[in-house]
């Protein structure tokens, strides 16, 4: 079994690449430990597929290659599974993720399996190309795989809100029952008691886009909902089930394209609030680039 070192090392590298791409952060998604077990196993399968393709080609066994590519296409199913899981959990979220965010997460999880396959493939190719140097080929495979994994992870990293917009605190004003932030009416808070809670505890911010591309991206409803969800999952919300008047709000000022974020956090910390908004990811599905169009350039 002359391909054994290649198979072992490439599968392992692909698996480790998937592990490296799994991050445990405030989102707690994939959930730990069951969600991790699922994704690590899928990463292992991906790594094995990437690893086996190279010996199969070298042996001229193209039917095996076709089958492996067919198997790789099964990872599409990952996206559906993720979407279904997150959608069915949506009803239990105090502040909804929104379909755009769910779609984004599902896409990332599908893509990461393909990345694991690429990494395993590159490690296998390196290991086979350097078959002459004996066991050192395994080290070469690891090195190539690690470099590719690092590069791919960096390339796959999307922007954060802080990259495309400036975020500043804003003053909360009341006009009768209306909560107004820098001229944008956020909502009608009917009860005087609720208004008192807003006066004492609420925080508001303006998200000002840097340029027309950012403005178009921020105008996406899914992006607005993602901000509301992520900020509340990072700093917590002051609300109970059914207390709709304290639900975090994101509204858009049509004149400038700025977003206004209003929420009642569980702890009133202005810096944490701003930092949380800046760290919300820009959804891939929300990104618009009007400046690349002819008409968009005319306006700018």
């Amino acid at each position: 079994m002359k391909y054994l070192p290649t198979l072992v090392i490439a599968t392992l590298v692909g698996f480790l690449a998937r592990l490296y791409m799994l991050r445990r952060d405030y989102r707690q998604y994939p959930s730990y430990p069951q969600g991790w077990a699922i994704h690590l196993f899928l990463g292992f399968i991906g790594g094995a597929i990437g690893a086996i393709i190279v010996p199969a080609i070298l042996e001229g066994d193209f039917s095996a290659v076709s089958f492996l590519l067919l198997a790789a296409s099964q990872f599409r199913e990952v996206r559906n599974v993720e979407r279904e899981t997150l959608s069915s959990m949506e009803a239990t979220e105090m502040v909804k993720r929104g379909t755009a965010y769910i779609e984004g997460i599902a896409r990332v999880f599908e893509a990461r399996n393909y990345l694991a396959i690429w990494v395993a493939l590159s490690a296998a190719v390196a290991s086979e190309l350097l078959a002459d140097i004996g066991w050192w080929r395994m080290a070469a495979g690891v090195l190539v795989g690690a470099v590719l994994a690092a590069v791919l992870v960096r390339l796959m990293q999307g922007d954060l809100i802080g990259d495309i917009a400036s975020v500043e605190l804003s003053e909360i004003k009341f006009e009768g029952a209306l909560v107004v932030i820098e001229g944008t009416v956020m909502m009608n808070v009917g009860l005087p008691e609720s208004r008192r809670v807003y006066e004492e505890r609420a925080l508001a911010a303006s998200v000002r886009p840097k340029g027309p591309n950012a403005k178009a991206t921020l105008a996406n409803l899914g992006q607005m909902q993602a901000i509301a969800h992520d900020v509340s999952s990072m700093i917590g919300v002051y609300m109970d089930v059914g207390e709709q008047e304290f639900i975090p709000m994101v509204r858009r000022d049509p004149a400038t394209g700025s977003l206004r974020v209003l929420m009642v956090p569980s702890e009133r910390d202005e810096d944490a609030f701003l930092a949380a908004i800046r760290r919300v990811p820009v959804l891939e599905g929300a990104v618009r680039k009007p400046l690349t169009s002819y008409a968009g350039k005319m306006i700018d």
């Binding site: 009768g176 029952a177 009608n188 808070v189 009917g190 009860l191 005087p192 008691e193 609720s194 089930v241 059914g242 207390e243 709709q244 008047e245």
Partner: peptide
């Protein structure tokens, strides 16, 4: 008026809006 609004809104888990 306010008390009724609070009670009803809590029953339904709904929001109270003031028409001024």
């Amino acid at each position: 008026l306010e008390e009724l609004a609070v009670l009803i809104s809590r029953i339904f888990g709904a929001a109270v809006h003031d028409l001024h």
